[in-house]
Write a protein that binds this DNA or RNA. Structure first.
Lengths: 308, 308
DNA sequence: ATGAAAGCGCTAACAG
DNA sequence: CTGTTAGCGCTTTCAT
């Protein structure tokens, strides 16, 4: 009998109404994903990681990009609340807005944070040790013999910037040196601004022998800037990036960079969020899991020119 | 009074239950977006275009990537039907699967197709003239004086491949030549396979003086292959891509390519789909809108070496 | 075993 | 203009 019903259902291409199921189950089976204007490869990695965990089809992924969170965190909160989600995945910089977390907690909307940098004890946290990663790239350049190293920071509202910088600082300290503040410039993670600030770095005299960029897009821009000045990479200038994005492999020379396991972290975040959603008990129990970075030494870094 | 209720609602941070609203409105306010493993920049452009239209927050975007549609179109159909969508945006190659369109029509799930290449009279169609675009790049190379032109096709299941190829063919015919079939190789739109087939092209004797790749990732791979053989671009070899993806601008030399207005097309598709959803009348009335391509001549193409 | 009924949270239609 | 009620499509409980 049960079988006959199933058969008839299949026959008629019947599909139960999800809204009715949601109404009674008191959940929507929708997971939100918020991010802010980062590189396409980052977004796609994030998204694919989360989707990888959701592939059984029980939950669906709703994408909710939102710009300038820092200046209006409560607005994002309202957006998320109105989206009828069961839970939300927060990428930087949204995951670092305490006001946003306040709103979500007050309204009991569970969340998981991917690579947050502040208030690490709140909610589900999946992260990478940015300080250790920054330390690793900087140490790589220092051990090649570089001392005049230009630094291109990312957007200061992304706290990742700070952690990586702290790692650079420690590496310099260990090498018995100090960072020259005049060789620090601020970008915003985009190619265009990266190019502009790289030009100002390369105009310094004496010129830096290496550039540490806080993401790959800006590193590639630095290579272009060097090339436009007739400098060879890595002969005259070494350049290191961050992220292991696709562009780091398609660039020439291929970029030395740090792999941030974005995909795995997103999978993990989705996994923990769903576990919290399904096991109703300790829903929002804060938990933390660190993923390892990986230094990828490729063709864009070499010892400084002999004269230096 | 009405005001007092609103105030109380705001006070309590009350948000109406969307599932209940959906149940009564008989729609979910969810729009699906299906695509298949293309380059990150393409996905993000597509997504941002659609999201741009959805930003009033009435509708939400659910991402539903699905691989190997060609071999199991009905399965995608079931996935979409079970996702409780009001409508769906179909990118290639899903938008070219008649079986999928059959399923969607049978179940009355409205859809909009972005750059389809077959059955152009079905459903809402937003497209670009691939033949004209292919014709434009090929004509560019031919008018620079190239005659031995290698061609790297994309994945043959994406019908875009065919249209662009047809455009190349017409351009050659107009120039009074014909394409040398031995200089046609097949990639799959990825960098890695692009690199491999570019190497086989460059091993031909006499070597082609130009390469026409069907997307930018493969074009960048061709540049890398040339460089690894000690060839300069565009001195020894001209390379043209397709898509105007981010990599085409960050590559060196910057790629001559064709801008496919993906973002605008996605916006348009979302717009028409929503119009159909809201104005209940002629819901699925087939309509078609063509967007213009744009040839972007940059640094990777030049006349062939004098000896040729 | 099968069938009937209540109710999830909301909106729309109606009565007061 | 305010208040009441029926019902959207489903699941779960309870009675048969």
């Amino acid at each position: 009998m049960r079988k006959r019903v199933k058969e008839a259902a299949a026959q008629l291409d019947y599909h139960p109404n999800l809204a009715a199921q949601s109404l009674i189950a008191r959940r929507s089976f929708l997971i939100g994903l918020t991010y802010e204007r980062p590189s396409p490869s980052y977004v796609v990695e994030l998204q694919n990681g989360a989707l990888g965990r959701l592939e059984d089809g029980r939950y669906r992924l709703v994408v909710l990009p939102f710009n300038h969170v820092a200046s209006r965190p409560e607005e994002l909160g309202r957006l998320l609340l109105r989206a009828g989600l069961d839970g939300v995945l927060l990428a930087p910089p949204a995951c670092d807005q305490p006001e946003l977390l306040d709103v979500l907690e007050r309204q009991k909307l569970p969340y998981a944070r991917v690579t947050p940098h502040r208030e690490l004890a709140r909610g589900i946290v999946v992260t990478m040790d940015e300080v250790a990663a920054g330390h690793a790239v900087a140490t790589h350049l220092l051990s090649l013999g570089h001392r005049r190293i230009g630094i291109i920071l990312g957007d200061p509202s992304h706290a990742a910037s700070l952690g990586r910088m702290e790692g650079y600082r420690r590496a310099f300290a260990e090498a018995g040196g100090a960072i020259d503040d005049r060789l620090i410039v601020t970008g915003d993670f985009t190619y265009d601004v990266g190019y502009r600030v790289a030009r100002t770095l390369l105009a310094h005299s004496p010129r830096p022998t290496a550039i540490l960029a806080q993401n790959d897009d800006m590193a590639v821009a630095a290579i272009a800037a060097a090339r436009d000045l007739g400098l060879s990479v890595p002969g005259d200038l070494s350049v290191a990036g961050f992220d292991n994005s696709e562009v780091s492999r398609t660039a020439w020379p291929q970029l030395t960079t740090v792999n941030q396991p974005v995909r795995e972290m997103a999978w993990d975040a989705a996994n923990r969020l769903i576990a919290a959603l399904d096991g109703e008990s300790n829903s929002a129990a804060p938990s933390r899991h660190d993923h390892a970075h990986e230094l990828l030494v490729r063709a864009s870094t070499a010892p400084p020119p002999p004269m230096d």
